[in-house]
């Protein structure tokens, strides 16, 4: 079996597992929605203020929902021993963990982006801001997902769960948050957003090239 075929197997397996437990996928979505609706209650029903804050609220809520799903990335594989088999397999581990991260992005993050698109529309973002938020999430979440998988690999099989992962990952997420929200702010002022989008895409490419090796090293460090 070629390395790519092995990675495709890992991806297929993770997607299938997610499909058979759709209830688990719904939880972060519900959490995300609740958090987005908690903010207006705290801020007060001032439509103008809320419209200004909505992009930031969507970004922060997506960030928190994403962090909450991180402990699950390697937990099941660690519990049933298939993580050791992945490490022992003759195929390059970085490629296999990249497949796992991709599966995590498709099952955990893509639904969040869809939900944020829905909520952004319903709560009255103007069109260009809406586009900036959604495009920013599409370009930025690969970084969040990959760095999150790295943290999850470091903390695999450790008590502490989402709190520990939030402590590790949130400082590393700050650049993405900055570019994502500043793109939305620019869009709401009818300014160009190319620079931020290019930065987000660049960070994603950087994360795609480097973090798989980091994730592999982290798994080896924890399990070897």
């Amino acid at each position: 079996m070629s390395a790519l075929a092995a990675a495709a197997c890992v991806l297929h397996r993770d997607l299938q597992r997610a499909r058979r437990r759709l209830g688990d996928l719904a939880q972060p979505l519900v959490f995300f929605t609740v958090v987005v609706f908690v903010f207006p209650i705290a801020i007060g029903p001032n439509a103008e203020v809320l419209r200004n804050l909505l992009p930031a609220i969507l970004w922060v809520s997506a960030l928190l929902a994403l962090v909450l799903t991180l402990p699950e990335v390697f937990a099941a594989d660690y519990a049933d021993g298939s993580l050791e088999l992945l490490i022992l397999s003759p195929h390059p581990l970085p490629l296999l963990v990249l497949a796992k991260a991709l599966a995590q992005w498709i099952t955990g993050v893509l639904p969040l982006i869809a939900m944020s698109a829905l909520l952004g529309g319903v709560l009255g973002l103007d069109f260009s801001t809406w586009v900036a938020v959604e495009l920013g999430l599409l370009l930025g979440t690969p970084v969040l997902c990959l760095v999150g998988c790295l943290a999850s690999a470091l903390a695999v099989g450790v008590r502490g769960g989402p709190l520990l992962l939030a402590l590790i990952t949130l400082p590393l997420y700050i650049p993405v948050l900055i570019f994502g929200t500043s793109a939305a702010r620019n869009a709401s002022l009818a300014l160009p957003v190319d620079a931020e989008m290019l930065f987000l895409a660049g960070l994603s490419v950087l994360a795609l090239t480097l973090t798989p090796f980091g994730i592999a090293a982290a798994l080896r460090a924890r399990l070897a």
Binding site: L150, A151, L154, A155, L172, P175, I178, F179, G214, A221
Partner: peptide, 20 residues
Amino acid sequence: AGAVLAVVGVVNIPIIHYSV
């Protein structure tokens, strides 16, 4: 594990610094 995290931090520090 801490060493991996510290190295990740070193890669990230310039990015964080300039984005901030």
